[in-house]
């Protein structure tokens, strides 16, 4: 075995052996380095790209290709399984005139607003409560509030179907709201509120975890300093807690909005496919119906891209409003 002069540094014989094992021609390369310097340089240039290539190849196959082909698809319409027809912007024009699309867009927006004004404040409230010193059994409560998110949406929908039932359901039997029975899932006005309430039950605990993490990152000295200055609890909440939570709030709001606009399984099961009168149909449900039930893949692709634009626009506006792009 050839031996390389050990210049007294830390590499042992074994280490050198490994080096040879990995790069057996290392010495030859060094000898011919001048001759092959061009190749060597090329190789150095190419190597990083090769290292990152697996990601890009997978991305291209599983994300890039479907994205581009769905964009192309949105300018076509299927005719059966084997042929398609170019319709230009026909699908987009149809979409604008499609009352069920507008209805599903409104339902989805309604749910998103419900999430924003109901679910996230509840999540924040729970987080503040479970971060307070006087609450006992925090770990148990945190787990308890978090647990609903572990239940599959389908089961949640089936359970809430029983709870919201007009005559036999728990809500109408236990709490007579507004002095009369509410047809939660039978009255077009109450279907989305029922979905929102179910969403609160399922997701508030999940978002609570993010707020809790944010709360625990706020420096205690700030509160102490405020207390010294005579601030009450509410003032410290408004002037310390909320501003310090801004990045977390921005994250939770944006992620919840994206999730809300992609809502599918919960209303799909809860309303048996959007009934009555499409009052529970969301955009993604309508996309699914068109793509898989009506075999209108072009139209479904169009809905998908319109949804993408809506989500992107809303996310950017929210991030702007919440000051995420602001230089600190």
């Amino acid at each position: 075995m050839r031996k390389i002069k050990n210049d007294g540094k830390k590499c042992s014989d074994y280490c050198l052996f490994r080096f040879y094992f990995l790069y057996p021609k290392w010495e030859d390369w060094m000898k011919t380095a001048t001759v092959k310097s061009r190749y060597w340089h090329q190789q150095q240039k190419i190597a990083p790209y090769l290292f990152i290539a697996p990601f890009y190849i997978l991305f291209a196959i599983f994300m890039g290709y479907p994205l581009i082909s769905s964009l192309i698809m949105s300018f076509f319409e299927m005719r059966g399984f084997q042929s398609r027809i170019f319709v230009g912007f026909g699908n987009f024009a149809d979409l604008l005139r499609d009352p069920i699309f507008w209805k599903s867009l409104w339902n989805t927006t309604y749910f998103a607003l419900g999430t924003l004004v109901l679910q996230l404040p509840i999540a924040l409230f729970l987080a503040v409560l479970l971060n307070a010193k006087f609450v006992k059994g925090k770990n148990f409560l945190r787990l308890a509030f978090f647990t609903p998110v572990l239940v599959a949406g389908v089961f949640v929908a089936i359970i809430f179907n029983l709870i919201f039932d007009q005559r036999a359901g728990m809500i109408n039997n236990e709490f007579v709201l507004f002095g009369k029975e509410i047809g939660w899932l039978n009255d077009t006005r109450f279907v989305m509120p029922a979905v929102i309430l179910t969403g609160v039950w399922q997701w508030a605990g999940y978002n609570m975890i993010f707020f809790l993490a944010g709360l625990q990152g706020i420096r205690q000295e700030l509160y102490e300093a405020a207390a010294v200055d005579g601030a009450n609890w509410w003032q410290s909440f408004i002037h310390i807690t909320l501003p310090s939570l801004r990045p977390v709030i921005a994250f939770v709001v944006v992620v919840s909005m994206i999730g809300s606009f992609q809502l599918f399984d919960l209303p799909f099961i809860l309303t048996n496919g959007g009934n009555p009168s499409d009052s529970g149909t969301t955009i993604v449900m309508y996309l699914y119906k068109n793509g898989f039930q009506f075999m209108r893949l072009g139209y479904a692709a169009t809905i998908g891209w319109v949804l993408f634009v809506i989500i992107a626009a809303i996310s950017i506006v929210q991030l702007k409003l919440l000051g995420i792009f602001r230089e600190e």
Binding site: L162, D165, A168, N272
Partner: peptide
């Protein structure tokens, strides 16, 4: 009476049957 729940095979509908409704 309209079906209890989302369709005839819903647990709420079975419950209403058992209650004699």
């Amino acid at each position: 009476t309209p079906v209890y729940g989302t369709w005839h095979g819903d647990p709420s509908n079975y419950a209403a049957m058992q209650d004699g409704q």
